[in-house]
C-alpha cells in the first residue's frame, strides 16, 4: 500500500433521483492524516462522508479503507467512528454507558470496558463524569463525550460531520484545538466535514475544497490559500481583492495582508488610492482604499503612527509575485 492509499475513494458519484449531488470524486489519503472536506452547503461534502460511513450507497464508484473495499458493507460492519452535528448521545444512557456502547456491542468484558471508558474520559478532560446523563451537560461537554464514544472502539477512521456547528464561537475554537490534539495523539485518520474555511485551515493536514459535487482543489491549507487553482477556491477561502483591470489585466487579485502602506523588501510596485473606510479589529486595522474605482482591502498591524483617515491619499505597496491570476 502506498502512502496515500489508506482511505481511497474512486470515481464516486451519487444521485438522488435525477439530481446528481456527487459528480465523480476521487481522492486518496494516508494513515493518520486529518482531512477536511470544505465547501458551501449543498456541495456534496456531507453526502461523501455519509457514503464513507455507509448511510448512503454510492450510485457508482468505490470506497476502500486499508485496501478493503467497503463500498457495499453495512455501516455496522465498517469499524468506523463518527461524531454528529447534533451530538446524538443516547439520552437514556449515562456518559459511561454512551462511551462504552461500541465496546459492549463488540463484546468487550465489563472490567476492560470500564477501564477504557475511564481512559477516554481522561483523554477528553472529563474524568469522573461516568454517572452523568447527557442532559446534565453543556453542548461542548456533550460533543466531547460524543468524540470519546466514537474513538473508544479504536475505529479505523474517524468521521466528523460538522461537529462544531451547534456550539458557540468560543467553545468552537477551543474544541477544535482539542480534537486536533487528540487526533494527533492517537494518530487516527480523520475526515472532517465543514463549511467554515477558517476551521478547515486551522486543523487539517490536507483540505479538499468542493463545489457543486466536484473537487475544486486538494492540498494543504498553505497551498489552498496561497496558490488557489480556481476562481472558486480563491474567493471561497479567505478574503480577496480584485485588482483594477486597467493596470493589471482581467482577473487579477491579491490577499489583503499582502498589500501594505509601507514598502517591504519584496514589494516592487505601488498603487495610489483614497481611503474610503477604516475598520479597527483590535490587533489589526482593515482599510478600504479606492484604487481606480476598485475597492481594495488592506490588513495592517495596529501600533504604527496614527492610522490614516477617511479621504487621505495613500500609497499601497505590493509584490508582483503575490498577484493571483484567477482562472476559470
Amino acid at each position: 500500500m502506498t502512502e496515500d492509499q489508506f482511505l481511497r475513494v474512486d470515481a464516486l458519484t451519487k444521485s438522488f433521483g435525477t439530481n446528481q449531488v456527487v459528480k465523480g470524486v476521487s481522492f486518496g489519503f494516508g494513515k493518520g492524516e486529518f482531512i477536511s472536506l470544505l465547501g458551501p452547503s449543498g456541495c456534496g461534502k456531507t453526502t461523501i462522508l455519509r457514503m464513507i460511513a455507509g448511510f448512503e450507497t454510492p450510485t457508482t464508484g468505490t470506497i476502500r479503507v486499508a485496501g478493503e473495499d467497503i463500498t457495499h458493507l453495512r455501516p455496522n460492519q465498517r469499524k468506523l467512528g463518527m461524531v454528529f452535528q447534533a451530538y446524538a448521545l443516547f439520552p437514556n444512557l449515562t456518559v459511561g454507558d454512551n462511551i462504552g456502547f461500541g465496546l459492549k456491542v463488540a463484546g468487550m468484558g465489563r472490567e476492560e470496558r470500564r477501564a477504557r471508558v475511564e481512559e477516554m474520559l481522561r483523554l477528553i478532560g472529563l474524568p469522573g463524569f461516568e454517572k452523568r446523563y447527557p442532559y446534565e451537560m453543556s453542548g461542548g461537554q456533550q460533543q466531547r463525550v460524543a468524540l470519546a464514544r466514537a474513538i473508544a472502539p479504536k475505529p479505523r477512521l474517524l468521521l466528523l460531520d460538522e461537529p462544531l456547528s451547534a456550539l458557540d464561537a468560543k467553545i468552537r475554537v477551543s474544541l477544535r484545538g482539542e480534537i486536533r490534539a487528540i487526533q494527533q495523539d492517537l494518530g487516527i485518520t480523520t475526515v472532517f466535514v465543514t463549511h467554515d474555511q477558517e476551521e478547515a485551515m486551522s486543523i487539517s493536514d490536507r483540505i479538499v475544497v468542493m463545489n457543486a459535487g466536484h473537487i475544486e482543489q486538494m492540498g494543504s491549507a498553505h497551498e489552498i490559500y496561497n496558490r488557489p487553482q480556481t476562481r472558486f477556491v480563491a474567493t471561497f477561502v479567505g478574503q480577496l481583492n480584485t485588482l483594477p483591470a486597467a493596470t493589471f489585466g482581467p482577473d487579477r487579485a491579491i490577499r489583503p495582508e499582502l498589500v501594505s502602506l509601507a514598502p517591504r523588501p519584496e514589494t516592487d510596485m505601488t498603487l495610489t488610492g483614497t481611503v474610503a473606510d477604516v475598520g479597527f479589529l483590535g490587533s489589526v486595522l482593515r482599510l478600504r482604499v479606492d484604487v481606480e474605482g476598485a475597492p481594495i482591502s488592506i490588513d495592517t498591524f495596529n501600533g504604527h503612527a496614527p492610522p490614516p483617515q477617511r479621504g487621505d491619499t495613500v500609497t499601497l505597496h505590493l509584490a508582483r509575485k503575490d498577484v493571483l491570476a484567477l482562472g476559470a
Binding site: 460511513a53 469499524k79 463518527m82 454528529f84 443516547f90 456502547f101 456491542v105 472502539p153
Partner: peptide
Amino acid sequence: TLTEAAQIMG
C-alpha cells in the same frame, strides 16, 4: 441520528 450513531458503532 440515534440509529446512525448506534449503527456506526457496530
